[in-house]
Design a protein around this nucleic acid. Sequence first.
DNA 1: TAAATTTGCGCAATCGATTGTATTATTTTA
DNA 2: TAAAATAATACAATCGATTGCGCAAATTTA
Lengths: 343, 343
Amino acid sequence: MSKGEKDVTIYDIADKLNISAATVSRALKDHPRVNKNTKKLIVKTAEEMGYLSNSFASNLRKKSSNIIGLIVPRLNSNFMADVIAGIEKVLNNNNYNLFISQSLETMTKEIANANAMLVNRVDGLLVSLAYDTTNIDHFDPFIKRQVPVIFFDRVFESDSCPQIYIDNQKAAYEVTSHLIKQGCKRVMHITASQLRNVYADRLAGYKKALEDNAIKFDESLVIINDLSREAGIQAAQQILDMPNKPDGIFVANDSCAVSCMQTLIKAGINIPHDIAVAGFNNDPMTCVIEPNLTTVNYKGYEMGEVAAKLVIDRLVNKNEFHPAHGVILRSELIVRESSTRIT
Amino acid sequence: MSKGEKDVTIYDIADKLNISAATVSRALKDHPRVNKNTKKLIVKTAEEMGYLSNSFASNLRKKSSNIIGLIVPRLNSNFMADVIAGIEKVLNNNNYNLFISQSLETMTKEIANANAMLVNRVDGLLVSLAYDTTNIDHFDPFIKRQVPVIFFDRVFESDSCPQIYIDNQKAAYEVTSHLIKQGCKRVMHITASQLRNVYADRLAGYKKALEDNAIKFDESLVIINDLSREAGIQAAQQILDMPNKPDGIFVANDSCAVSCMQTLIKAGINIPHDIAVAGFNNDPMTCVIEPNLTTVNYKGYEMGEVAAKLVIDRLVNKNEFHPAHGVILRSELIVRESSTRIT
DNA sequence: TAAATTTGCGCAATCGATTGTATTATTTTA
DNA sequence: TAAAATAATACAATCGATTGCGCAAATTTA
């Protein structure tokens, strides 16, 4: 099988140069106590011999992997792509690698992912929770081992883990208020699992806006589903069957909002005049659908950066997490035609 | 710093039970030469003590990581999400983990990613190439070390690496033929870097279809860009400036096709009657744009599965790669309103 | 019942890099 | 020039799991 020449080790280099492996090791990591010329020679020889440091050995000895784990619900969104880009930038600058996995919105897979991260001994963990995660016991082993765990976007209240998110309640309040200002009297809200802060807070913001506008909260105007495209179609059908239809809809994500809109439009509903619609996330899709979708924008890239900086700060600079665990990032309402009645 | 109790090792378990570490090690991996009762006791004790196998030590000794690397141009597409899901399913079933990274379409980052994979000693590597990758020298170290490298979708001709892709030429031929059948006489083609098989083959298929329909190939009807949304807008503007406009456009990906269409429509062009349009990939967006976009569908999930199975087969079953290196998967033309003139 | 197997377990080397503690060579200081 | 300080290198233990080999006990076979 392995006709391939054996991997070159620091011992091979040491033998060749008649020096000790310790010096080779130190030279390769630019230790100050090694003579400059020796260093140069060693580095050159290592290169010539095709040396590749064995990270297993190194990690074993150093008890660290320089790998940060990332667990997200899904990868196929622009938001997550931005988050990842932000994380990668910071990690690369600090010589850390990223281990990515997706839970596909299930706690089961999230647990499996966490275990994989544990076994592969990541030095830190960044997490955005799945829909149905009811507790975060699966992250306890990390905390016990002093591996920093940081939640972003879909966070979980925990004293041991910092959290990064936007003010979802405020954002939802703004969306709902905006719809009301456009003349909506019966605003519907479509959202997902109330286990997740992002959806619970958005519902809270929605309720608060109703309240502040003296509109009575109507339970029948709230739909909780998985915010998938299919769910959007179903929700639309449900709306079409309603005798007393809403005149505004605030959907907690864009792809669901879009499919819902499409279905409504096909059924002859005029948007925004019969029903005004708003989404959340500012997905590229929002500018493809006609009329363009009002939505909430927030910067995934920045969120990724902040999360990564927090871990790095903890790992590299040995800083304890700031006592105030929450970092709240900015978001903005983007008004487009799907909700514009007054011009 | 680390007040956390030290990690439990097999030696701790061995001491506690007054047996050897060798037996503990064997018991934990269910070695047949260990008594069933001893095994049970060891497993139970390990659990109680909160034992976690140290993969560094294990990997060092076994010279394998059980990690497969994945390098893709971008993560934020539905196609890639499907691919990844397919890969993960197969890998999980075989007790392998996945290490994901994105090149963001640049060779520089692709090389950096490859090096990270090398350092972290993945057991196998799955790759879809960036736009501007001109050679695959950065994968040589893997091949030298007998680490299987498999290309999918955006492949590179190489004797050492199997390739999985669709028949892009045929698919493009079908798209172009379809447009011609709808009455198009001047079909434009918008595509990307001809370094990549997918785009070179699509151009070839486009040319072949023209030829077979006795239409002379016109260089000025081919635009090569990066197929981004912005590029689609630019391309549309370029078209609008043309004195002799095309009456059909075949774009090599959907998001570019969509933004191009949007721009054309805004300028008063009627699609499909003035210009018929077709894309590639069957992104969800194709059913959001009006008129819905004709496109080519191919199954990312299956492609991921096949790629992963190939590595696993090589690693687990020690099978050499099949002499016929290419696996060609099925694709299908999906005709929608953006190109339907005849009904 | 003696011989041959099989079962169960331990010894000790090994994987390759790191690092605290010598040790030797060189330079500086007194 | 001897003593002290510094620079450069080497020694050897260590990280924790794996595994070939050996040995004893238990079981089977003849």
